[in-house]
């Protein structure tokens, strides 16, 4: 008898609970445009914020509300096309962008001007005499960018951060995190990059880092297109003129110009 009572009581409790939930779900139902769910499912879901919205769910809502579908950097063309198919609009072009650490100052090329034992963060280190590296413009290697990267695309090795272009989505989180502003987000291309941010005169740069741009103007003089200019003691490429001929690369005495890997 008592077993039957037990079964009945537990069943009744279960049914009452179910009834409460059904009523609650009915009255508290959240009205959602079903396209929001569809669009979020084609977005990568990394919530990186490269699109300018608070996260993928937020961007999905914005797309349904009429925002352009090609803002998602990690999702790239595929996400844009899929979202466009759901919304019935044109996808538009997505420019692939990659982060690059414009510095070659690994431990082989620079030295420490003091032994830093504080909080392991570039921002903290940079606030102490402009950082522990002899070059006060370059990568400090404490990995603020590594922490900022949601795609596990950056590693620090030998005191220098390096971006893995295969994993990089160009979201720009590392660019924001770098206190030295030595990480750039640029359209992916096979054009050369000057891997230095040191604005000191050549002799000083040379003392600080053996791989830094010394502003010798050799690249500027030899560029057939006039696409490279030394301003403020460091060479910079004008990508609207650069044809990627690599003459500057071969001329550079400190090998500060390189071609980033393209995936």
């Amino acid at each position: 008898m008592s077993m039957v009572t037990a079964i009945i009581i537990v069943t009744v409790i279960g049914f009452i609970g179910a009834a409460v939930l059904v009523v609650a779900a009915h009255f508290m139902h959240v009205e959602e445009d079903e396209r929001i769910g569809q669009v979020s499912s084609v977005l990568p879901g990394a919530n990186c914020g490269a699109c300018g919205y608070a996260g993928c769910a937020d961007y999905a809502k914005a797309i349904v509300g009429g925002a352009p579908v090609n803002k998602c950097v990690p999702g790239g063309e595929n996400a844009a096309k899929a979202a466009a198919a759901i919304m019935g609009v044109e996808a538009g072009d997505v420019v692939k962008r990659k982060a690059i650490v414009a510095c070659q100052g690994s431990l082989d090329h620079t030295e420490d001007k003091y032994v830093y034992q504080g909080v392991q963060s570039c921002a903290a280190c940079a606030s102490l005499y402009k950082g522990s590296a002899t070059c006060e413009y370059g990568c400090l290697g404490y990995g603020d960018c590594v922490k900022a990267c949601k795609f596990d695309a950056i590693i620090v090795s030998n005191g220098l951060a390096r971006v893995n272009p295969a994993k990089c989505t160009g979201c720009g989180a590392c660019e924001q995190a770098c206190p030295k502003k030595v990480i750039w987000i640029r359209p992916e291309s096979e054009k050369p990059v000057v891997m230095c941010a040191n604005h000191d005169r050549g002799a000083l740069t040379r003392k600080a880092c053996t791989a830094g741009c010394i502003g010798c103007m050799k690249c500027e003089k030899n560029c057939p297109e006039g696409a490279i200019k030394v301003t403020n003691n460091v060479a910079r490429v004008d990508y609207s003129k650069c044809t990627g001929c690599r003459i500057c690369m071969n001329q550079c005495p400190v090998h500060a110009i390189t071609i980033p890997k393209v995936v």
Partner: peptide
């Protein structure tokens, strides 16, 4: 109903709801 032994199972049901 003398069903104290049902305590855990009933509680889990209620908490889940």
């Amino acid at each position: 109903n003398d069903l104290q032994y049902l305590q855990t199972i009933a509680y889990i049901l209620i908490i889940a709801v």
